[in-house]
Each structure stands twice: as structure tokens, then as C-alpha cells.
Simulated assay, not measured.
Amino acid sequence: MKRWMQHIMPPGTKCMCIVAIVVHLDFQSRGIGTALVREGTNQADQDEVLCWVQSSEAGRRCFENEGFEEKERLEVDLDKFARGLEGLEERDAERKWGTHVWKYMVKFPRQVD
């Protein structure tokens, strides 16, 4: 995280980091996540601070819709960290964890009148 912050933020830059937005499956696709993100980014705009998030693919669209842009990504082969997967045959592929991608996304403050 420190490397990422140094990469996108000049020294002295103030920022807001969205740590987590989670909406229960029964209530997804109703605009709740978007409303939560918008509430935070409106405050960031008023405070004139950069806003960033480390998003999963599942959350990417919500953040893009609110003006975030992907600046960098981190892809991790989770199978390297899983115990008991060594030497699994191709037929056992459903037991593998696969690759996970985190997207580092940024929204610069917009001018508030």
C-alpha cells in the first residue's frame, strides 16, 4: 500500500481511501453501493482531496460509474499460497483458487461550487 500511495500521491497530498463497500446479495443492483460511494466522494470533493480504492473486479463498475479510473492492478496467483494443491491433476482444477485481480482506482476531486 505504501508503494501505491507513493506512486499516485505527491508528498503532502491529502486523500480519502475507501476501505470496503459491501452490500448483501439480496440487496445488490438497487443502487445502495453507488449511493454509499457517492456519499463518500461528495465529501472528498468538498474537502478537495483525492479519493482512491483497491477494488475487486466485482466492485469495479460501481467505482467507474462514480468517476474512478483504474491506474494500476495487482494480479496474484492464489494457488501459490494454498496448501494441498501441489501436484493436482487438471481434472481437479475446480479445487484450485485461481488468480485474483485487485484494481487500484483513483478519483480526483471535482470542483464544487
Results as ranks from 00 to 15, higher is better:
residue 26 D to K: 06
residue 39 E to M: 11
residue 58 A to D: 10
residue 23 V to G: 05
residue 49 V to K: 02
residue 27 F to L: 12
residue 55 S to A: 15
residue 42 N to T: 10
residue 53 V to L: 10
residue 43 Q to V: 14
residue 35 A to S: 11
residue 42 N to G: 06
residue 51 C to R: 00
residue 60 R to W: 10
residue 47 D to I: 09
residue 24 H to P: 05
residue 29 S to Q: 14
residue 24 H to F: 10
residue 51 C to V: 05
residue 28 Q to K: 06
residue 25 L to Y: 13
residue 58 A to Y: 11
residue 43 Q to H: 14
residue 35 A to G: 07
residue 45 D to P: 02
residue 55 S to R: 01
residue 53 V to N: 04
residue 23 V to Y: 03
residue 52 W to L: 09
residue 28 Q to G: 09
residue 54 Q to H: 12
residue 23 V to E: 02
residue 31 G to R: 02
residue 40 G to K: 01
residue 56 S to K: 05
residue 46 Q to I: 05
residue 33 G to A: 12
residue 51 C to Q: 00
residue 54 Q to M: 13
residue 43 Q to W: 12
residue 46 Q to H: 06
residue 31 G to Y: 01
residue 52 W to N: 06
residue 37 V to F: 03
residue 57 E to G: 15
residue 51 C to K: 00
residue 60 R to A: 15
residue 47 D to W: 11
residue 33 G to M: 02
residue 53 V to H: 02
residue 28 Q to Y: 05
residue 62 C to F: 09
residue 23 V to F: 08
residue 42 N to L: 09
residue 49 V to A: 05
residue 34 T to P: 02
residue 46 Q to N: 11
residue 61 R to E: 09
residue 33 G to V: 03
residue 49 V to R: 00
residue 37 V to W: 01
residue 25 L to H: 08
residue 24 H to A: 14
residue 39 E to K: 11
residue 57 E to N: 15
residue 26 D to M: 08
residue 59 G to F: 06
residue 55 S to E: 03
residue 53 V to S: 05
residue 44 A to Y: 02
residue 40 G to F: 15
residue 28 Q to I: 08
residue 28 Q to L: 03
residue 56 S to P: 10
residue 41 T to I: 15
residue 50 L to Q: 05
residue 41 T to E: 00
residue 53 V to M: 11
residue 32 I to C: 05
residue 53 V to E: 01
residue 44 A to M: 08
residue 36 L to N: 00
residue 49 V to D: 03
residue 47 D to V: 13
residue 39 E to W: 12
residue 26 D to S: 09
residue 41 T to W: 01
residue 23 V to K: 01
residue 39 E to V: 10
residue 34 T to V: 09
residue 35 A to K: 04
residue 43 Q to C: 14
residue 42 N to E: 07
residue 62 C to L: 08
residue 53 V to C: 15
residue 51 C to L: 05
residue 51 C to M: 04
residue 61 R to D: 11
residue 37 V to S: 04
residue 36 L to H: 00
residue 48 E to T: 08
residue 61 R to Y: 07
residue 58 A to L: 13
residue 51 C to W: 03
residue 29 S to Y: 08
residue 49 V to P: 10
residue 30 R to G: 10
residue 54 Q to E: 11
residue 29 S to V: 07
residue 24 H to I: 12
residue 32 I to L: 04
residue 55 S to V: 14
residue 24 H to G: 13
residue 25 L to I: 11
residue 54 Q to G: 14
residue 26 D to G: 04
residue 53 V to Q: 00
residue 24 H to Y: 10
residue 55 S to F: 06
residue 58 A to G: 15
residue 43 Q to A: 15
residue 30 R to K: 12
residue 52 W to I: 12
